[in-house]
């Protein structure tokens, strides 16, 4: 078992270690720290959560495996990691499936839609998905000038994560998909190994990419999502009362996170603009039309189709 006794808080409860890939400045860290503090308070110190930021416990793929094993108790992992274990998770990684952060949050915390999906890894991998933290709406930014329609991206090397879906997405939007490690991207944009990248406003600013690729075009092609996964056995150890407290505090946590995210996004836009970035609108319909066929292309099973339909139905 991975949990130790909570020494620091003076209690005799169990401390759960939570692996996070983001820095201490990221909204996810703040929301999760507060989540841990409140959970410890409401359970009278029977439980505590110790957040390890900066990938110190491992990158997402390893962290997920450690949670399954019980070495680490909780982790924030991306949809791609879960998709590698159960392809149904692909649906929420598709472009155009969510219209907005609010739409996304309502879908990924709707028990009727996601109940089976979130329990699907319990038997096979020993992890339970509690829910998600939004990673914001993603758009394209370029080094050479603003983009209005997919045609403007023709011939541009767009950095994507190394996955079939992201490659197909970049190509659907008219660009030449170039997988590249995220850590190399700043230099890559600066030197011209790639011409464009896509991300949320917060990363665009904190990674200083606006310095080298100052043209932000709000394609809003994808709403990013991270999941909170917990070791299934550890959850089972909780009394009913503590489990209810965990769920309640988690709901408060992702709601707080969505607010923090919105203000972080506003700040990022203001600071990037002050730093010389320009934010422009695109022909959203043209991008939607270009991306629409991807869902058909990537959805393979009835379960996936059901999830997709449910998510879209919640948009109207």
């Amino acid at each position: 078992g991975g949990a130790g006794t909570a020494g620091g808080d003076g209690g005799s409860g169990t401390t759960m270690r939570l692996a996070l890939n983001q820095t201490e400045e990221h909204p996810s860290y703040t929301a999760l720290e507060n989540f841990g503090e409140r959970f410890s308070e409401t359970t009278g110190g029977r439980w505590a959560i110790d957040v390890f930021p900066n990938e110190t416990l491992g990158a997402q793929q390893e962290a997920l495996q450690l949670v399954g094993d019980g070495t680490v108790d909780m982790a924030i992992v991306s949809g791609t990691q879960l998709e590698n274990l159960n392809e149904d998770f692909l649906v929420f990684n598709l472009p155009e499936v969510f219209d907005s952060v609010e739409h996304q949050m309502s879908v990924v915390h709707d028990e009727k839609i996601v109940g089976d999906l979130y329990a699907s890894l319990e038997e096979s991998n020993g992890v339970t998905v509690l829910g998600g933290l939004t990673q914001g709406s993603r758009s394209i930014y370029t080094t050479s000038g603003p983009v209005e329609t997919p045609a403007d991206l023709a011939g541009q090397k767009l950095r994507v994560q190394e996955s079939d879906l992201h490659v197909a997405m970049a190509e659907a939007m008219g660009a030449s998909a170039t997988p590249m490690a995220f850590g190399e991207l700043y230099t890559g944009l600066q030197s011209g190994v790639v011409d464009a990248a896509e991300n949320n406003e917060v990363s665009y600013f904190t990674q200083k990419h606006f310095e080298v690729a100052p043209y932000w075009s709000s394609t809003n092609h994808l709403v990013g999502l991270d999941y909170l996964v917990v070791n299934t056995d550890r959850l089972a150890e909780m009394s009913q009362e503590d489990r209810a407290a965990l769920d309640a505090e988690w709901t408060a946590a992702h709601e707080e996170h969505t607010e923090l995210w919105a203000s972080a996004t506003e700040d990022a836009i203001a600071e990037a603009e002050a730093g010389g970035a320009t934010f422009s609108e695109v022909d959203e319909e043209a991008f939607s039309a270009a991306l629409e066929p991807l869902a058909d292309q990537f959805i393979e099973s009835d379960t996936q189709q059901t999830l997709f339909d449910a998510a879209r139905a919640a948009a109207e």
Partner: peptide, 17 residues
Amino acid sequence: LLGFEGATLASSQRMFT
């Protein structure tokens, strides 16, 4: 810190990654 099973998994995973 973790006992034998957890330790071998975590350490070996780190060596690889």
